[in-house]
């Protein structure tokens, strides 16, 4: 009843096969550098101050075109997020420029009202058609899930791929979305010689195909300065990517904290069960 070396190898193989799976984009994959995030790995937690700065970037820059419809104002003061003070969030909701369409009222008319803390963070457009009409045909997507809906793709050699997967599993790598968003926001460049850029498009090194419709709202010369007087393109991009990672995964802090306890419990229990099993089987011989 020994687990032989061969069977361990088989398990590694099967395991490798199990993970040799998440689908990968083909030759058009762009290499994206990995950044260091406070919420990466199995001990990671969001940095509250960073989320607050990131929200400021979203509010002052992104919100001009993008909604955050799956995030509610109340989430901004709940545990595990930016944890703003409740009163200031209420005031923020009440003054949010994109009001909530409600109704019908007693006269049967729909009306606009200021947002409450239970309302979603609306973008400026009532629907996709209005958004497209205002943006030269391009649709600025809702950003609530953008950090989960985007990821990076493996670009190395095929034989190193399984090892890369095993490393990602062992280290709990899930920050592809944030890495991509950071690369995208800092990825505006002059197109290389001979690159044909369609009209109204900008060259972005991180975007698949490099033809990107979003104007560079942040740049080395124009960025958001935080309350403490600091700020830069790099800092803004990093902070808003972290904020969007939270928007897509608001339970991350709790998830990872509970996760440790669960894993610990399972390891201890497995050990106890194994000791029990050995005692029981000692009688069988």
């Amino acid at each position: 009843m020994r687990v032989t070396k061969a069977s361990l190898a088989a398990l590694a193989f099967l395991f490798g096969g199990a993970v040799a799976t998440p689908a990968l984009a083909a030759g058009d994959a762009v290499h994206i550098d990995r950044q260091s995030w406070s919420f990466s790995g199995f001990t990671g937690q969001f940095d509250r101050a960073q989320l607050q700065r990131g929200f400021q970037v979203y509010k002052d820059v992104c919100a001009a075109c993008h909604g955050l419809n799956r995030v509610r104002f109340r989430n901004l003061f709940e545990a595990g997020g930016p944890e703003f003070d409740e009163e200031s969030v209420k005031a923020l909701a009440a003054s949010w420029p994109n009001q909530i369409t409600d109704g019908p009222d007693d006269q049967g008319k729909m009306f606009e009202r200021p947002a409450l803390q239970s309302d979603p963070i609306r973008g400026p457009f009532k629907n996709n058609n209005e958004a497209r009409a205002a943006n030269n045909g391009a649709l600025p997507p809702d950003l609530s899930l953008i950090a989960k809906a985007r990821t990076t793709h493996y670009t190395g050699t095929w034989w190193a791929h399984p090892f890369s997967m095993l490393r990602d599993i062992a280290t709990g790598y899930q920050e592809g979305g944030a890495d991509y968003l950071y690369a995208l926001l800092t990825g505006y460049q002059d197109p290389p010689e001979g690159f044909h850029l369609a009209e109204g498009m900008l060259y972005n090194a991180a975007f698949p195909g490099h033809q990107f419709a979003m104007p560079a709202m942040l740049s080395e010369d124009s960025f958001i300065t935080y309350q403490d007087g600091t700020g830069s393109l790099d800092q803004n991009a990093r902070d808003v990517a972290a904020f969007l990672a939270w928007s897509a995964d608001p339970s991350l802090n709790e998830r990872k904290r509970i996760g440790w306890l669960v894993i610990l419990y399972l390891i201890v229990t497995t050990g106890l069960l194994y000791a029990g099993k050995r005692r029981i089987w000692a009688k069988a011989h």
Partner: peptide
């Protein structure tokens, strides 16, 4: 279950596809 919990708590989206969040 240790393997299961590892994915549930630390890699919940690893085995899925990013496009399914659109």
């Amino acid at each position: 279950l240790i393997l299961f919990a590892w994915f549930v708590f630390f890699l919940p989206d690893y085995l899925g596809h990013a496009d399914n969040y659109i």
